[in-house]
């Protein structure tokens, strides 16, 4: 008696979103018509992509373990981006404009624009630009950057339910991609996409950030919300079928389990490997749950996740090999 394993077919599929335009080498994500990584029964025209995070200032609280690969480049975003793309193999770069936050120096929108320009000049890969976080400053910084580098298909991170109009407008006007952020909540994720759609954003220009809980720190919430978002999308929900982005590095590298040394907790093993394992486990779980864009901090983590993805998608992007 042989098994009748029917491939699971779905009415919906994930939107294709192209990151980067103009002088960027564009990269498209999404398009899959099955559960994440279920390459044995569905078509995936594009594989998940991996980004590395660079910062506009010397990040005050990064651990030595994540500083070491960026020795001499922290706070030099263009140089760090070049190394990330050329040497570490990042598919794209996330420039974290943390220095624009009022508590971290409060760099001006114009200074932020200079950093963005330097990174755009240094690399050809698509660029995610992360603002200082919700509040008026976020809009000032990202709107300035969006206007100045129109046509580059920047990924602007991020708009939320309470504050979406400004960034929606500049995304439409200047041809960028907008990240819609929601607090680990399926319904709010959909609500933000509906609100964006109501102000005439084409959802082919939107990524959903479901908010990442790191391993041991809410990962299970993010994981299940992402699975539910993906199921809704495959079920045909046009307001939940944007590809998802997860900011893994920043969640992972602040938790107790990566900060404590082996000397303090001998049972926990080698601190550096443990930290990278933590980042890989978080990233991979979320890719299984549906992440299409994953932002990491440690280049070794990127190399390890990339190796799995390379083997997975070795037979070409479309893997319907049944």
């Amino acid at each position: 008696m042989s098994l009748k394993l029917q491939p699971k077919k779905w009415p919906g599929k994930i939107r294709e979103v192209t990151l980067g335009a103009g002088n960027r080498q564009p990269r498209t994500v999404g398009g899959g018509n099955g559960l994440p990584l279920h390459t044995f029964e569905a078509d995936f025209p594009h594989r998940p992509v991996l980004a590395l995070e660079v910062t506009d200032i010397n990040p005050p609280r990064w651990l030595d373990i994540v500083r070491e690969p960026w020795e001499g480049l922290l706070g030099k975003p263009a140089d760090a981006a070049r190394k990330a793309a050329e040497q570490y193999g990042a598919d794209l770069i996330m420039l974290n404009l943390m220095g624009t936050h009022p508590d971290r120096g409060g760099r001006s929108p114009d200074q932020a624009a200079i950093d963005v320009e330097a990174v755009l000049d240094a690399v050809r890969v698509p660029l995610i630009v992360k603002g200082p976080g919700a509040g008026a400053k976020q809009n000032d910084v990202l709107a300035r950057v969006a206007e100045k580098y129109h046509g580059e298909g920047l990924v602007l991170h991020s708009a939320c339910q309470e504050d979406y109009k400004t960034l929606a407008a500049v995304t439409v006007a200047y041809g960028h991609v907008l990240v819609s952020e929601s607090p680990i909540d399926l319904n709010i994720a959909k609500q933000v996409d509906i609100l964006l759609s109501d102000v005439n954003i084409n959802l082919d220009r939107v990524l959903i950030d479901p908010l990442t809980g790191g391993l041991g720190y809410g990962l299970e919430y993010t994981y299940s919300v992402m699975e539910r978002i993906r199921l809704a999308a495959l079920g045909g929900d046009q307001m939940l079928n944007s590809p998802m982005i997860c900011l893994v590095g920043e969640e992972v590298w602040k938790v107790k389990e990566v900060k404590v040394s082996e000397r303090q907790e001998p049972r926990w093993g080698d601190q550096e490997t443990r930290g990278i394992n933590w980042e890989v486990a978080t990233a991979w779980s979320l890719i299984e749950a549906g992440a299409e864009v994953v932002v990491l901090r440690h280049p070794d983590s990127l190399a390890r996740v990339r190796k799995i993805l390379d083997a997975w998608f070795a037979e070409g992007a479309s893997n319907n090999t049944r």
């Binding site: 909540d185 399926l186 319904n187 709010i188 959909k190 609500q191 509906i194």
Partner: peptide, 8 residues
């Protein structure tokens, strides 16, 4: 979940 989805 029902509450959040109705808050719209």
């Amino acid at each position: 979940d029902e509450f959040v989805s109705a808050s719209f």
